[in-house]
Design a protein around this nucleic acid. Structure first.
Lengths: 164, 164
DNA sequence: TTATATCGTCTGCCATACAGACGATCTGCC
DNA sequence: GGCAGATCGTCTGTATGGCAGACGATATAA
């Protein structure tokens, strides 16, 4: 139909605003579809992932890492605790804080989710060859490593210095 | 840097849920910061981009492309029209529909925004070398081309067949 | 003409996020 | 030890935003 169509993409600048948003929307939809067991859909998947894989010391750390308000984190975790997926444990070192740990059920659910999400991702990236998918993941990971919104780089140092 | 913490990432599967979300959050924050002239921040930038660069015939097409409800699109465009950035024109071919076109001011504002967003992107991807950034953009674009919730795949074929 | 579907708008409801206050606790200082 | 200020997690109230549903106007098919 249109003779000038290729330029209807967002031009050569700002791939993000166009491609990435659509990609992430589609990804989120697929994750939501696979997240019957979890509250909050994609958010829930990210939360449980952070709980299991990223050893964040407290609720507040969890919240700032995920970019969620702490008051929101409260009832988010209420839902997860109600489902028996995570537990709030008292932190012996700081009795104000709660250590969030995944229950066995939580770990099982996450493992199942991860398998489904991985499959959905492969399907989502069907337009890319396997090598390109790996490349994309690596580039994303490397790009994301530089993003520290309100993170203190000293924390990493502190963690590195604390043995075990 | 750190010897152990890299494994606190989401493991080898599902880079998306972890890296990409943080990356997009940071990107969105930077776009918001650069979007003083636009309503709705990042959303507004995406909307204006779609209006100018993607020639969508109607409000509904705009809405489905951006994944926005049509009722939301109404007051979103109200705000944009109020700012003199876009206009609702009657579609002579279908008097129910409105053609959304950017005003001169809208095009100027978008152009300025795109420059700022491009700069922010470069800054955001500072961890990657220029070649890697280009590679990332190309991979994202190609991956996003496959995502057609209600898109016609024939368009992709048409684009591929047209020699750049 | 009639019936049905679509477009854009409007109304009302509901979920959700955020500001602020609160008790409990930690930290630093005296 | 006692005190002040900061932090953690929770609770309450508010406001912002999205979505379902209905509506008039219009297009399309029978």
């Amino acid at each position: 139909m249109s003779t000038t169509p290729t330029t209807t993409r967002a031009g050569q600048h700002s791939l993000f605003g166009w491609s990435l948003a659509a990609l992430l929307r589609e990804w989120s939809a697929r994750v939501d579809a696979a997240a019957d067991d979890l509250p909050q859909g994609t958010r829930g998947y990210q939360l449980l992932t952070a709980v299991v894989h990223g050893d964040l010391p407290s609720q507040a750390a969890l919240a700032s890492t995920l970019g969620i308000d702490r008051t929101v984190m409260t009832y988010l975790l209420d839902a997860f605790e109600g489902c028996g997926l995570v537990e709030r444990q008292l932190d012996p070192a700081d009795r104000r804080a709660r250590r969030i740990v995944a229950t066995d059920k939580g770990q099982e659910v996450l493992a199942a989710m991860e398998a489904r999400v991985a499959a959905a991702e492969e399907e989502l990236l069907a337009g890319l060859e396997p090598g390109q998918r790996a490349m994309l993941r690596e580039l994303l990971e490397r790009a994301a490593m530089g993003t520290g919104p309100d993170e203190d780089p000293c924390r990493t140092v502190a963690e590195a210095t604390t043995p075990g």
